[in-house]
Design a protein around this nucleic acid. Structure first.
Lengths: 347, 347
DNA sequence: AGTTAGCACTCATCGACTGAGAGTGCTAAC
DNA sequence: GTTAGCACTCTCAGTCGATGAGTGCTAACT
């Protein structure tokens, strides 16, 4: 069976209506609302075909039809009019992404808020991974007696500080020496690499200055074992918007959804970090069972050619794909520009 | 009408049963479950009295009684057996609060998680306010060309860093001079005080070194206008636990509750920062309408005599007060000890 | 005077039933 | 190929009555 023009029209009409109303829609209603020039009976026949093709389904015998995952997929791929952005949304995005921003954290949270606000859906934003940034250099600053502040600068510009324990008797010059060794050795490596391969090298270098060895190794410990390092935080915006979606009128669904929200790992899996450009994942297409009734529009963003993060919009499969896609697309474009041009933004 | 011994017994029984079952409880059930040696009829008479006293109420004519806010209050103040902590809970708290912790953030999030886990309720933790810490000193470190890292150390030990813009031509020595002036002037003041009163003084001091003036003022800007500074973040743990409470089986209630959760300001108001020790706020006793069906057990914690934060447990008014109180009490005790003894913990 | 048994009454809950409404599939006519 | 007609299905909202838990009141009992 082929998809002729009329079938497409009917499918489009059905999906658009369902997206707007969340109610199953029948042949009669389609005939009434959309001027297709055919009677309900004809539409019934076509719908029967569409059902056989797996594009729509019936919740129960005598309800209207609703789109299946495959139906949405077909809609997004072939039927949907090209995503257009409303001018005021465009302005809003531009306004929010041209701020002068000093912290990547802020960019992330702002973007997250922006996306959920524009779509009335939930946004998921994944920022640069801490552990991934390659090490550039470190400094020590005085702190309390027996302690020092270690400031670590990554090559992507991120700055972190840690309080470390030093012996009471370690002098500033000694610390400087340690910093010199570490800076020399670790420059250009990620912290994970340091952990895996470089440690024993540093170890052997420092045995010559036996007194420094213990300190040095202990100093490194906090940045190497920082639990935030690998498992980066996923930012969620507008989770509450989900509660307004009629598909989540059931408390049990809300529970499982929100439970999944609490696990960063799950959320991260929703964002297609491996794929370029705009990705649309519909319903069961993602692997996570908790999100089988949800769709995700996601896109990556980059700094200097390298993919450093991703933004996504999460909604029920019945969502306004055109709008969401336009918003995600435009936002990542602006984000890329912001991160490229504004050199002052440390990541 | 007076509260005689039997009335107390009945009220206690009723509240304890209601806390456990969340179901209205009638005279017959009380007579059966609790061995009070009187008939249901007598209990009915007593319950009628208790209702007149405002301590219990009826959801509708032919249901059992449930405690009113005043009833819980009476229970907490006079009836409840003194809060005892289970040994394993005790151990857990001790284990979690004797970690070697380097960041106050971690202490906060850990505590939050711990509390919600132990009670199966929601925890609210308010940490030290950034803007409040008095300034101790600052350092500048090299960063990109035209930029520097400003590391600010507060007297309570907190360390923050900011990327600041400096003129391309500003030399390290000049920065050092600026730092010296600022360190001298600002030591011992809170950033808010600096903002209010000290700025013009610094201004006049630096006019002598005209070239530095602009830089210095611009440098201060990020730490003075940091929006995180005053409005501190409230940490929420186990918000989902609320969904398991039968009183939140209604989606509308969940919505308003979670909406309130999103506003830090609201949550902050739940914690009685002004009062010493353990505070119990029952139902409508707090001023926020969204939380009129909730009770809060809260306590402040301190560093060096000064109150720097508060922890709280939020649950439905029908909560196990004894347990929650014991847990909050013990946790803050341990927290105080941790923050007092472990000098290494920067706030 | 306090306590208790008895009783009539109230009210939420639940299952069964019903009618209305929406929608379908099929058939036969156009 | 399209359409009108029709019987059929299924959900939903509402009604009805039975059930059961609980109450308040009264009168008898200790």
């Amino acid at each position: 069976m082929q998809m002729d023009e009329r079938k497409k029209k009917i499918l489009r009409a059905l999906i658009q209506d369902y997206i707007a109303s969340a109610e199953p829609i029948g042949s009669r209603t389609i005939a009434r609302k959309f001027d297709l020039g055919v009677s309900p009976a004809t539409i019934r026949n076509e719908m029967s075909d569409l059902e056989e093709l797996g594009l729509i389904e019936q919740p129960h015998t005598s309800a209207g039809r609703i789109p299946s995952d495959a139906g949405y997929r077909y809609y997004v791929d072939f039927l949907m009019e090209p995503p257009a952005l409303r001018d005021d949304d465009k302005m809003l995005i531009e306004r929010e992404t041209t701020h002068r921003i000093h912290e990547i954290q802020e960019v992330i949270t702002q973007t997250s808020k922006l996306l959920s606000q524009l779509t009335s859906l939930t946004s998921v934003v994944l920022g640069p991974q801490k552990g991934k940034g390659t090490f550039s250099r470190m400094h020590f600053l005085p702190y309390q007696p027996g302690q020092a502040i270690m400031v670590v600068v990554k090559e992507n510009g991120a700055v972190e500080n840690h309080i470390i324990e030093i012996g009471q008797d370690v002098a500033a010059e000694e610390l400087q020496k340690i910093a010199d060794v570490l800076n020399r050795k670790m420059h250009g490596y990620t912290l994970n690499e340091v952990k895996r391969t470089l440690l024993h090298e540093i170890y052997s270098e420092l045995t010559r200055q036996r007194s420094l060895l213990d300190s040095a190794l202990e100093l490194l410990e906090p940045i190497l074992n920082d639990q935030d390092q690998e498992q980066e935080h996923v930012y969620l915006g507008g989770a509450l918007n989900m509660l307004n979606q009629p598909e989540f009128r059931d408390l049990e669904k809300v529970k499982t959804l929100f439970k999944a929200f609490e696990e960063d790992g799950r959320l991260k899996k929703l964002l297609s970090m491996d794929r370029e450009g705009l990705t649309v994942t519909i319903g069961g297409e993602n692997k996570l069972d908790e999100f089988k009734d949800c769709s995700v529009i996601s896109a990556t963003f980059r700094v200097g050619g390298e993919i450093v993060g991703a933004v996504g919009i999460l909604g029920p499969t019945r969502m306004d794909y055109a709008k969401a896609m336009a918003i995600v697309d435009y936002t990542t474009r602006m984000l890329n520009r912001l991160l490229r041009t504004s050199k002052r933004t440390p990541l």
